[in-house]
Amino acid sequence: MKIQVNGQDQKLKDEATLADLVEAMGLQGKRIAIEVNEELVPRGEFDHHALREADRIEIVQAIGGG
């Protein structure tokens, strides 16, 4: 399926979960937070949150700022 991650198109196997995406991006164990279609998905739900075609995903982290 085709999804969008941080504004960029990305292909992912069908029936993938959010946890699969996190793993595919090498972000396991990193301090991140994720929104799917502008809704926050808590870390504890990554394993069973099924992704759908055309989902828009935002993966964020803390950076320096004022």
């Binding site: 941080n6 504004g7 990193k30 991140i32 935002e58 982290q61 803390a62 950076i63 700022g65």
Partner: peptide, 11 residues
């Protein structure tokens, strides 16, 4: 303070 931004963008 910190800011929240897309991973691997801006760092």
């Amino acid at each position: 303070t910190i800011a929240v931004r897309r991973t691997n963008i801006g760092q």
